[in-house]
Nucleic acid binder design. Structure first.
Lengths: 132, 132
DNA sequence: TATTGACATTAGAGCCACTCTCAGGTATAA
DNA sequence: TTATACCTGAGAGTGGCTCTAATGTCAATA
């Protein structure tokens, strides 16, 4: 069983965020010890991982909450949950493409600056000039 | 020359955001017509693209502003700008890896649900059970 | 035994980056 | 000349943290 701090370190999410998520009802199953301290099981960690996954792909907190509620409702919500995960994956794939495009642009500019520095040329990329 | 609306459509950023960015000093070079309406040149569009790029990789507005100010200062800031772009690219590459991991997890779960639906099995993924 | 330090808890204020609403200005078209 | 389709700025509202403050538990040390 892990405290908030340990979960925070294991999964690289701030304690603040974990408490905020807890307050938002993302972890209805996490137990407390006699001093009211949250104890996450290994299985709970997997849940946190899913929340991280959904959030990092830009699913808003309300929808994350809804997904969790569907899980708790059990088998009869499987199709709905399937669709949420599928749509989320599709969204993530789009983001991946977008990110690749941004990396290309950044690489282009990195290269551009490298050349400028090496060749000691003037910068032709400034408010008054064009990219290409 | 393009109005805010046209830029918004071309680059898929809301007019609100563009105005917000303008107010934040991200486009000090954009001209206005006699009615005070912003007119973006093709070159300005490239600037907006860079801002989109930096923002979408999570560079905060203050740092975006700083980068723009460095550009305006001209040649003597090239090395500093190079480092900003390089660090941003590295950050983006990390995000790419992270995103790929998330997509893997989503695919795993998608598959899991698909099987459940096809085989009409019970859901073993719920608060009380483990992922594997 | 008292206190120090490392942990935990909550409520709630503050912050960032939008996002939206509003009131108002201009230009063309019916 | 009124409708529409734009544009403008100011400023309120929102989401999702992020941080602070006040408080509590417990183990170790002076």
């Amino acid at each position: 069983m892990y405290t908030i701090k340990e979960v925070s370190e294991k999964l690289n999410v701030s304690e603040h965020t974990l408490r905020f998520w807890a307050k938002s009802g993302f972890f209805p199953f996490v137990k407390r010890d006699k001093n009211n301290i949250r104890l996450f099981s290994d299985n709970d960690l997997e849940w946190v991982r899913i929340v991280i996954c959904l959030r990092s792909v830009g699913i808003d907190n309300k929808s994350v909450k809804k997904y969790i509620e569907l899980c708790i409702l059990g088998d009869k919500t499987i199709k709905e949950r399937y669709l949420i995960i599928k749509n989320t994956k599709d969204k993530a794939l789009k983001q991946l493409k977008e990110l690749q495009k941004q990396i290309e642009l950044l690489s282009y500019k990195e290269n551009f600056y490298e050349k400028l520095i090496n060749e000691n040329l003037k910068d032709t990329w400034n408010p008054m000039n064009s990219l290409k």
